[in-house]
């Protein structure tokens, strides 16, 4: 489970030294909340205001999800304390519906402000996991087929 999401008004920029596949031109980002939408966050480019990537905290929706960092990932992120780690997955509107990419999560060290997009081989076939399974539209029906809970069934506080 992620600790509290980054929510300070103006958090210092995060640096992704290895870039993000497809977006290599952009290395500096901030994670900002999406107004009026508590499910999603925005990874906003500091260099290009038009470039932002939708993110999600995957753990409430996919309780069995495990993001395991290798020693070299920890080195790359200069990660010393587990509580400094934030993990988000990217969200996309795809032909399958609203989906998230469990195979390539973003790992962020809130202390060093370094970020890296990982690739988890054991989730290699879960690049586009639906958040809303069509069968979940009936109230109370758990979309077990997606391997996760629908965000609409997810308990709100």
């Amino acid at each position: 489970m992620n600790p509290e999401p980054l929510s300070k008004p103006e958090p210092p920029a995060l640096f992704f030294p290895w870039g993000l596949p497809g977006l290599e031109r952009y290395r500096r980002f901030t994670v900002v909340p999406v107004p009026d939408n508590r499910f999603f966050l925005l990874l906003q480019s500091e260099d290009e205001p038009a470039v932002g990537m939708l993110l999600l905290d995957p753990f409430p929706l996919f309780p069995s999800y495990r993001c395991t960092l290798t020693d070299s990932d920890r080195q790359d992120l200069a990660l010393e304390r587990r509580e400094d780690l934030l993990v988000y997955t990217t969200v996309s509107v795809s032909p399958e519906g609203l989906c998230t990419n469990l195979a390539a999560p973003l790992a962020i060290n809130t202390a060093s402000r370094l970020g890296k997009q990982l690739y988890l081989r054991h989730y290699g076939d879960r690049l586009r996991v639906p958040l809303v399974h069509p069968s979940s539209r009936a109230p109370g029906k758990n979309p077990a087929a997606t391997g996760g809970r629908s965000i609409f069934n997810h308990k709100l506080d």
Binding site: P21, N37, M53, L54, S92, V93
Partner: peptide
């Protein structure tokens, strides 16, 4: 494959206002 999902996540951010916000 990661490129494709990342670029989709960028273009999806542009349709933010149409994303679900509550059950």
């Amino acid at each position: 494959a990661i490129c494709e999902e990342n670029l989709r996540a960028v273009s999806s951010a542009e349709s933010l206002s149409r994303l679900p916000t509550r059950p």
